[in-house]
Design a protein around this nucleic acid. Structure first.
Lengths: 262, 262
DNA sequence: GCAATTGGTTGCGCATCACGCAACGGTGGG
DNA sequence: CCCACCGTTGCGTGATGCGCAACCAATTGC
């Protein structure tokens, strides 16, 4: 009898073996790669069990192993699934060409995010021309108060909605906004100018600017951002890039039916 | 007794329920969305079984349902997994074994390039078996309009992107394409047939053919080429080698998550 | 406006199937 | 050269995943 059961995502999950297999995927997403024994230990099951789960995942290309008898890591099947996931979201489909253009124009990384409960969910990313892909944010949930995207996403919420979306303001760097009053005055400013900037608020050395994407009703449904190292995204660079950003976000809004004369 | 068994990916997959769950994901990737009954029928299991598998997938956010009792579709959890997959995915590493195979099959030099602003950047090279060696291109930036690789890389750009990427068309040999209209008609042709050929356009005596490498979204992210002396890469030789080239490029695309398998 | 059909959801009990066990083969380190 | 470790595989058992049937909600047709 396994003492460990309904942990985290496992709640409500009826099929044990599937639950375990999916937990393996999440482990690999977190840790990069792992061996059978290691996975079995973390899952609290026998080696052979973990091995069979891995074999099944491998048959669907969701994991692959290093050599013939090596460690396991995530496989390309995930990319196909993600491609199909985003293809379904017309937001991403419409935004993608615009993002590519913005990425080449500014040379920085472009992201598309939506609000998911109390966090910003990163849906898509186009790497800037600046050689090294900094970090892939896709699929991650980030606190709303600590990023330019997040602030844009909550900038037009009602008082009650805001209270629900931002319950606490944990400090992530020493530039993170942690006082509610300050956050609110920043949101006022964002509504006024139509974009948000965050310097070193999520990670030290990371600067980002974001602008809202609206649907046909004028609601903010998503946010588009450019981000890069603070040393490169100086005040002067932002003065050049922010107008490009807001124009791109507006373009996507138009494609979603915003501002069309009826 | 389930008449349908070890189909497609199921071969070698030991854990039945996991195999079924993953098959559901693939179904949803293919069809966009589906209901419990529909899924159960296609899987050859009872409704309740399909439902429990879906519930488990939903707990891990790999699927989500439309309303409270609606149809099912792929969920955002896939994005997270894909983000973690790309983080460790390296174009050169994935392409290298395929390049080696292509080099031995054709006997010519194989190159991998990506677009870097207004030029093609050579990332990797595998020398062909043929004694006569061309020099090593790795690390070099070459004008986009003068090589087969470059033309592939710009073949699906929008009008605006193309304008920015190819500002001028300097003449490098007397076969170099220097008229914008001609370049565009060549790009039309490349899109149609799926590969590009350049004879004596970069250097006199150098012929190359290139084919696109795509990511999970279908975007052209890189180009693969074979190149050799013009006297050897005759029309007949190309007729034999180009199918090998396009097959190899497609194989790499698959390794990067590009769809359409089998 | 009601009946009928469709489609997602849930408790139950049996048999299957997934699990733990133990042994194997390859690899790397002492 | 042996030992320890790790991925892999056949086997027997019982936990578990499955089919069944009934339930409920929504939509359709009369």
């Amino acid at each position: 009898m396994p003492a460990v059961s309904d942990t985290e995502a496992g709640a409500g999950a009826s099929v044990q073996s599937v639950d375990r297999a999916l937990t393996i995927l999440e482990m690999l997403a977190r840790e990069g790669e792992a061996g059978v024994t290691e996975i079995a230990a973390e899952l609290g099951v026998h080696k052979s069990t973990a091995f069979r789960l891995l074999a099944t995942l491998e048959a669907h290309r969701l994991v692959e192993q290093d050599g013939d008898r090596g460690r396991y890591r995530l496989g390309v099947g995930n990319l196909r699934l993600a491609g199909a996931t985003t293809a379904r979201l017309d937001l991403v489909t419409e935004a993608r060409p615009v993002c590519r253009q913005l990425a080449t124009d500014t040379g920085e990384t472009v992201n598309i995010t939506v609000r998911s409960e109390t966090s910003a969910l990163y849906l898509d990313q186009v790497a800037g021309s600046s050689a090294l892909q900094s970090h892939n944010w896709v699929g991650q949930h980030i606190p709303l108060h600590a990023t330019s995207n997040g602030k844009v996403l909550i900038s037009e919420l009602t008082e009650a909605e805001l209270k629900r979306a931002v319950r606490e303001l944990p400090r992530l760097t020493d530039r993170t906004v942690t006082r509610r009053a300050e956050l609110k005055s920043q949101l006022d400013h964002i509504r006024e100018v139509g974009y948000a900037v965050a310097v070193d608020e999520l990670e030290v050395g990371l600067t980002a600017a974001a602008a809202p994407i609206r649907n046909a009703h004028g609601d903010i449904v998503a946010s588009m951002s450019i981000s890069g190292p603070t040393f490169r995204l100086t005040h002067e660079r932002l003065e050049r890039d922010v107008p490009l950003l807001t124009a791109a976000a507006t373009e996507v809004s138009h494609r979603l039916g915003w501002g069309q004369r009826v």
